[in-house]
Design a protein around this nucleic acid. Structure first.
Lengths: 140, 140
DNA sequence: TAACTACTTTATAATTATTCTAAAGTACGT
DNA sequence: ACGTACTTTAGAATAATTATAAAGTAGTTA
C-alpha cells in the first residue's frame, strides 16, 4: 500500500509489532493517537467521532475497535474503566495514577503517590500492578 | 402490605431512608443483600439470577436495577466498575480497597494500605475518596 | 374500612457499548 | 502481476442497562 515514508515509519512499526498489517486506516488511527506532544485519554466512540468528523470516507467502527485492542494488547495503550462502564484508553503507558473529576480524567505522575504500607498478595499470587484513583469533588 | 414485623424492620428502614416504599419485592431483595454475616460483591445480573432461581414468581429486571440504584444512592452499597465494564456492587460500605484477580474481587481492609505521599487536589477541588486496586497474577 | 392517588411492578421495547459475520477489498511474499 | 491470507465494511448480534406504559399496590384520607 502507501509508501513506507519516514513520516509514517514509527506508526507502521507500532502496528507491525502489534501484529497488524499497516493498512491506510490503521496508520491514520495510530498517527492520530501518537503523533502529538501530550498523551491523552479517549474512548473508542469518541475517537471514532473525532476522526470521522472531518472525513468523507469514514473508517468503520470495527476497525477502530480492532486497532485499539491490538495496540492495547501490545502495550501501546493502557485501558481502564470509567464510572459509566465504558472503556477508556490512555496513550500514557508509563505507570501512573488518576484523578476522576466528574467524568474528567486527569493523570497523576507515579512519583506523586508513594505507599507506606501495602498488603501481601494472597499465596500463589503476586502483584501485577497497583492503581490509585482519587475521586474529586468541588470545594465547600 | 406485609406486616412490619421485627424480622423485616431493618430492611424496611433501609428502603424508606432510600426513598423507596417497602414493597414485597424490595424487602426481599434488601433482605437477601444485608441479612448475612459477611459482606459480599455482586452484579445486578448475578443478583437477579441468584434470587430468581428458586422463585416461581420472578422479580423483574427493572425492580432489581431500581432497588440497587436507590440503595446505592442512599449509601448502603458501594459501586465500582469491573474490567469487563459491568457494575459491581459491594455491601461493604466501609472505606477499603480491592484485589482484582482475574475477575475475582477481594476486599483489602483500609488499614492494610497507607500512603507516604498523596498529591494535592487541583484548586477549587477536594479529595472525595481514594481507591486502590491491586491487580494480581499467578506466580511464575 | 372504602376510596383515591401516587408510587410500583412487570413485560417488553429502546439504548448504548461492543463484538461478530460474511462479502468485497488489499497487503505483500513469490 | 498473482494468489492467499489478512482487512475493511455495513449491518446483524449480544450484553448490560434504561425507558415505557399498562396493570397492581401502598398508604393517606374520609
Amino acid at each position: 500500500m502507501q509508501k513506507m515514508n519516514n513520516k509514517n515509519k514509527i506508526f507502521i512499526d507500532k502496528l507491525r509489532s502489534s501484529g497488524l498489517r499497516p493498512t491506510k486506516q490503521r496508520v491514520e488511527i495510530t498517527r492520530f493517537l501518537f503523533n502529538r506532544k501530550k498523551t491523552f485519554h479517549f474512548t473508542v466512540e469518541a475517537l471514532k467521532n473525532s476522526m470521522n468528523l472531518k472525513r468523507s470516507n469514514k473508517i468503520s467502527t470495527a476497525t477502530f475497535y480492532n486497532t485499539v485492542h491490538a495496540l492495547k494488547s501490545a502495550g501501546y495503550l493502557k485501558e481502564f474503566s470509567l464510572e459509566n462502564n465504558t472503556s477508556c484508553y490512555d496513550t500514557n503507558i508509563t505507570s501512573h495514577h488518576h484523578f476522576f473529576d466528574n467524568g474528567r480524567v486527569i493523570d497523576i505522575k507515579s512519583d506523586k503517590i508513594t505507599f507506606q504500607k501495602l498488603p501481601e498478595a494472597p499465596k500463589g499470587k503476586k502483584i501485577k500492578n497497583v492503581e490509585v484513583v482519587i475521586r474529586l469533588e468541588n470545594n465547600n
